[in-house]
Design a protein around this nucleic acid. Sequence first.
DNA 1: CGGGGTCTTTGATCAGGATCAAGCCCGTGC
DNA 2: GCACGGGCTTGATCCTGATCAAAGACCCCG
Lengths: 248, 248
Amino acid sequence: MPQTAPTRTAQSCPQCPIRHSAVCSLCGPSELAELDAIKTYQTFQAGDVIAWAGEPQTIVGSVVSGVATLSRTLADGRRQMVGLLLPSDFIGRSRTQVAPYDVTAATEVTLCTFRKRAFDEMLDRTMHIERRLLQMTLDELDAAREWMLLLGRKTAREKIASLLVIVARRDAALHRREVGNGVSFRLPLTREAMADYLGLTIETVSRQISALRKAGVVEMHGTRDVTIPDFGRLLDESGDDADGGIVS
Amino acid sequence: MPQTAPTRTAQSCPQCPIRHSAVCSLCGPSELAELDAIKTYQTFQAGDVIAWAGEPQTIVGSVVSGVATLSRTLADGRRQMVGLLLPSDFIGRSRTQVAPYDVTAATEVTLCTFRKRAFDEMLDRTMHIERRLLQMTLDELDAAREWMLLLGRKTAREKIASLLVIVARRDAALHRREVGNGVSFRLPLTREAMADYLGLTIETVSRQISALRKAGVVEMHGTRDVTIPDFGRLLDESGDDADGGIVS
DNA sequence: CGGGGTCTTTGATCAGGATCAAGCCCGTGC
DNA sequence: GCACGGGCTTGATCCTGATCAAAGACCCCG
């Protein structure tokens, strides 16, 4: 089934041998038989560590399904998530030997991976993959900067609302729907992962979700399934101006 | 005089017609006569706005001297700096019509700018500029992520110490010295800009600098000139582990 | 030299979120 | 059925950094 994400030029990935609803962000659009020759698929369980910060980097590839996180840890154990990897996002980078962050599977994750040496050699021969990587990296940079605004200046309540907006939009994009009133989706993150994302503690995350529920901004069914009765109200709670919304 | 930044492959820029101690990050290494044909120089005073978020993007180019900032503002006026542009950093991006952030001169700034349309056309013809832009963007992304760790998890005191470490390192790199005990440098930012950078208020910035001064970690001469008697102690205060130091 | 403005420092108080500490919900295995 | 454990929620208290307020330091310009 063909897929089109709005800001990315990703297409379906017909040659991928496994069943998945998402996009292999390189195989599809690149149309390079050479990529097929060096790719394999790997699956990780929720909680598995895909790569450790500071260790030699072994994996280059893109997320086919599931959610993974990038995070860094301070000396005393405080942790901050610095990247959220959703289907079609790229993991690892070429020509770098050491992984800069911990990469952890937040749900079951399937990756389309490439042998690093072969991948680097291919980059040297086929420049137009580099153009695509540049665009993807610029998108990530924009997302990182919106995230910095959130971390530096938003209240706990605004942070939670912003995260719900992001997940709702990505989820809608994945199913090629518009976000609007009454949208429902499942949170792909535990309370702990949300806290790491937002620079909060799990208690504060829990309290603020409860507060938004009591205020009627969100409806929770169980602990992970969310319905947004009025998307405009959620946007108001997120603290963003008109539509300078969070990218990615 | 030739310049070499450690993590970037920048070189001197002999053909630039103006006197500057820093690097034109594209003209130099690209060795493209075509770039010369479409470049001009522009100077801005401290406080000048170089581009407004949401307005059509007019400028593409790199910082030759001075310091500029990228920032975003929430609806109620809270502001967060999301990028710090030092000599050799690139401003603007190709193939994007709308500027994503406010760009402001923090000191007097000189830019080496290119006509946007001509620059985009050149990118289409000469792929290897794209490779260089990719590397620069990846460096920026790394810096943004270290910054997220700072914003999300560091205390005010650690934030100030981290900023001093960053400025000391960039300053040392610019003069091809090693950072070490007794280094001195001048802060290129006002207290307000530091607060925007760190997600703090100016009062807290001022208090924490005073605290570090009283603790003997830094010496201040006037309000902008800093000496670090013991760089290791400053590093300890920054909260970073061993040497996972802040990139860029 | 003096005056006004901007930038910075310092003080007093307040509040948002962290921390510490139970308890709850729900799936799992015995 | 029941105990166990992991993830989540709620409560009480504390503390860091924001806010409100005022006074110094510095600078440009007459």
